[in-house]
Design a protein around this nucleic acid. Structure first.
Length: 193
DNA sequence: TAGAGGATTGAT
DNA sequence: TCAATCCTCTAC
């Protein structure tokens, strides 16, 4: 497992970058699935793209205010569940959205859950990877070293393979939407389009 | 308590 | 480009 102190640092952007290459594992309904993280986005309570902007706590984002190393799962557009890694210390609501995975184990379970046969399309997007991995809002607040969901060390990508770009779908955030806080692996076919 | 809108996706 | 779909948040 990853040491909890990894998640509890204050620089959420560095954590978003460091999560690339690590492995997300779920053990749900006795089915094991895992995938290498290839795309992330950082969110900080200091900027407008974040649900906890200016430290505003609501029923939905409450777990973001807990200590780093827990899962923040919420429903978007009434249809899709999004999986985030809570970072920083208690009271500082930062999080990293996991946007795409490269499947490692349990590909057959992912296909069963999603009905998607196109292999490169199963986990290439935040709403799709949660469905493939069996993650739902019932996992909101669980720790990332629990039985059902965990993050394990992986093959660390070389620094020159990491590409920074603008985050997706947060035009309402004004200038903060321009922050280069989305990280992908260069040329990786599993990244969302 | 009503109304608007969203850290997306897939089809047109 | 557009609808699906429902929870969350804000304003009244």
């Amino acid at each position: 497992m990853i040491d909890p102190s990894f998640y509890q640092k204050s620089d959420v952007v560095s954590i978003a970058r460091a999560l690339l290459g690590m492995v997300l594992v779920t053990r749900i309904n006795n089915l094991i699935t895992s995938g290498r993280i290839v795309e992330t986005e950082a969110y900080s309570y200091k900027e407008r793209g974040c649900h906890a902007y200016q430290g505003k706590m609501t029923a939905r984002n409450e777990v973001m205010f807990g200590e780093g190393g827990h899962a923040y799962v919420y429903l978007c557009y009434g249809i899709h569940q999004m999986f985030n890694v809570v970072t920083n210390v208690k009271g500082k609501a930062d999080a990293v959205l996991v946007r795409a995975l490269e499947p490692l184990e349990g590909m057959e379970h992912m296909q069963e859950r999603t009905g998607v046969s196109g292999i490169h399309r199963i986990t290439s997007g935040p709403g799709k990877l949660t469905r493939a991995m069996g993650i739902g809002r019932e996992h909101n607040g669980v720790s990332l070293w629990s039985k059902s969901i965990s993050i394990e060390p992986g093959e660390k990508p070389s620094r020159r393979l990491i590409v920074a770009s603008r985050r997706i779908g947060i035009d309402y955030a004004g200038n903060d939407a321009k922050l280069p806080w989305r990280f992908t692996l260069k040329g990786n076919v599993w990244v969302s389009k």
